[in-house]
Each structure stands twice: as C-alpha cells, then as structure tokens.
Amino acid sequence: MNFASVRIITDDVDRLVNFYEKVFGVSAERPAPVFAELVMPSCTLAIGHSQTVPLFGEGSAVAADNHSVIIEFRVHDVDAEYERLQPFIEEWVKEPTTMPWGNRAILFRDPDGNLVNLFEPVTEEAIKRFSGRD
C-alpha cells in the first residue's frame, strides 16, 4: 500500500490553492474547477470543493472544520521558511521552536484554519530518525 495524498475539503478552492502554491512554491494541477492537486516528490496535497463531498457519501466531510489533524512537511531550514512566509501567513501558532523530540518547527493555520507544521530534524537523534526517509 502506498500513501497517495491528503485532501482538504473547502468552500474556496482558489483561495487554498493560491495559499499552498505560495507555501510550497509549486503550481497546482487543476483537472476540474472543484479539485486541485499540489504534487511534490514526497506527497500530494489535494484540495476539493465541498460540492464534491456527496461523491464520497453525504456528510462524510465538512469544509473548514478540522480540529484534530496537523498537516506536516519536512523542510531544509525552518528559520528561512519562517522569514519567507512572514508576508502572507495571517495566523502563526508557533514561531520557530525546537521541540522536545528534536525537530525545529513552525506552525501556522491556512485560510480555512487547518494547522500546518513545517519542521526540520536538528538533534542527532531526530536526524538519525529521519535518515533514509525521502
């Protein structure tokens, strides 16, 4: 089994696509106006309009109602990302911080309120834990 993607359901696909294109520095693929994918080497972030929810089962997802998932991405330099993202991140949850498990991280919310974590392993143990994961 291979992990394919994480999909965010939203009422404003264009707004989230624009946001994540800025965060990731990649252009989204748009096979339909109600759906987009940001494809990166390690994962794909899919964004679907709330109009697509009935295709999966009525009430199976609710736009902008996430309170339990953190979307995480490993980066090369958290502090540089923090500086780069300052102009357009509206809600910072955590400024650059080294976590107890050895990752340096920043956390912020996307326009729908989803929590996003950019991190880099910085301690010897954390670097070892992530070695071989691409």
Rank of each mutant, 00 (worst) to 15 (best):
V122R: 10
H76M: 04
V17Q: 01
R84L: 03
L55Q: 08
I89T: 04
E95C: 01
E21C: 03
S131G: 01
Y20P: 03
N66F: 10
F3I: 09
A46R: 03
L45F: 12
A4Y: 09
N66K: 08
E120I: 00
L55R: 10
P87M: 04
M1H: 14
Y82A: 12
E95I: 11
V26D: 00
R15V: 11
E21K: 13
L38V: 06
M99D: 05
N18V: 00
G113P: 00
L118Q: 11
T44Q: 06
R109N: 09
Y20V: 08
F56S: 11
V23L: 04
N18M: 05
F108A: 03
F3G: 10
R84M: 08
I127P: 00
L45G: 07
Q51L: 14
A4H: 11
V39E: 08
F3D: 00
T123E: 01
F19K: 03
V17P: 10
F56K: 01
V53G: 06
T10M: 13
K22A: 07
R133N: 07
V39P: 00
S131L: 06
V93D: 04
I106H: 06
L45S: 01
M1V: 12
V122F: 14
E95K: 15
R30T: 08
P100Q: 09
P100H: 14
N114T: 04
F130R: 02
V39T: 13
D110S: 06
S27M: 12
I8F: 05
E95T: 15
F88C: 09
R74A: 14
E29I: 05
A28F: 05
H67W: 02
R84P: 09
E72L: 06
V23G: 01
E90P: 01
T98P: 00
F3S: 00
E124R: 02
F119I: 05
W101K: 12
V122E: 08
A63E: 06
E21H: 02
A36V: 02
I47P: 04
P33T: 01
T10F: 07
H49R: 12
R84S: 03
E21W: 01
Q51A: 15
V53C: 03
G57I: 08
A36M: 06
E124Q: 11
S5T: 09
R133F: 14
L45E: 14
P87Y: 06
F56W: 07
D14T: 11
